[in-house]
Each structure stands twice: as structure tokens, then as C-alpha cells.
Computed example of a mutant assay.
Amino acid sequence: MTRVNTADLAFGLFLMAVAAVALYLIADLPMGSTSRMGPGYVPRALAVMIALIGAFIAGRALVAAGEAFPDIAWRPILLVGAAVGLFGLLLPRLGLAATAFIVVLIAGSASKDMRWKELVMIAVLLSAFAVLLFVKALGLPMPIWPVS
């Protein structure tokens, strides 16, 4: 007897859930017609395609032999998620240079084989690159250093 491929089943169900949320959120947008598309036409078509792909993956998971669902690596999920959230919180207060440095340190520490010396060097380089790209080259109005 074949086991259910739980990883594919979970991913297929996830895609169908994302499509359902998208369809709910765009329910008020007018669809229009093929010749005169409304603002809801393309998002609805994409949501339906995502739902169909999810249904296909979930259906295939029920007939294919599978492996046990892998253990979830919580450390990378939590640290990278925290880094993203901290970027939004720290940028207005600390400026781009310090925020980018801190965020790279936090996200980089998600790896088990991380080396602090290399991570600090990468954080300095990425912080400088972010300032040069976003503030200097693109002229985005964001503080580079902490606002007093």
C-alpha cells in the first residue's frame, strides 16, 4: 500500500488556501469580459490557476508514494521573519545603514554553520551597498543614520 506524499499534499492545500483568500479579497472587483477586462479579471484568473495547480499537486500526492513530512526548521523561519519585521520597525529610527547591518546579522544567524567574522563583514558590505544603491544612486528619501 502506498503512503500519501504529505509534503506535496500540504503544499497543494496551501496553494488552494492562498487562492481562496485571493478570491475572497478580490470578490468586489468587477470582472469585465475578455474584450473589456475589469480590474478583477487578471487577479481572478491567476487565483483560479493557482487553485488548479494546488488541486493537481494535492491530487497527485494522494496517489504517489511519499515520504514522511520533514521536520520543520523553526530557527530559520523565526530569525528571518524577525529580521523582516525588525527592518520595518528599525528603519525610521536607526536609519538604513544600522538597520541593514542589524537585519543581516539576525537573518545570517539563522544558519547553523554561520561564522561571526564572515557574517559581520557581509553585514558591513551589504549595509554600505544598500546605502549606495537606495539613497545615493536611486535617491530614495530615507535616513542613512539614526534620526535624533
Rank of each mutant, 00 (worst) to 15 (best):
P39D: 11
V104G: 03
T6W: 01
V21N: 00
I77K: 02
R75V: 07
A19G: 02
A58K: 08
V147W: 01
I144T: 11
L119I: 02
L132V: 08
Y24A: 12
F101Y: 11
I122P: 14
A55L: 07
G66I: 07
A58Q: 07
G38T: 03
D28F: 00
D8S: 06
S109K: 15
A19C: 02
T99K: 04
G12E: 03
M142L: 14
R115S: 15
V131R: 04
P70S: 05
L52V: 12
S109F: 13
V63A: 07
F11H: 04
V18K: 01
T99C: 08
I144V: 13
V104I: 13
N5Y: 02
A7H: 01
A20K: 01
A97W: 14
A55P: 10
P143F: 01
G32R: 03
V124W: 00
K117Y: 15
Y24C: 01
A123W: 06
A58C: 03
F56N: 13
R93K: 15
D8N: 05
I26Q: 10
I50P: 05
G81V: 10
A10Q: 03
V135Q: 02
P70I: 11
L89A: 15
G66M: 02
L29T: 01
A65P: 01
L126I: 08
R36H: 15
A51I: 13
F14N: 06
K112R: 15
P92S: 06
E118G: 14
A100V: 10
I122H: 09
V103N: 02
P43C: 08
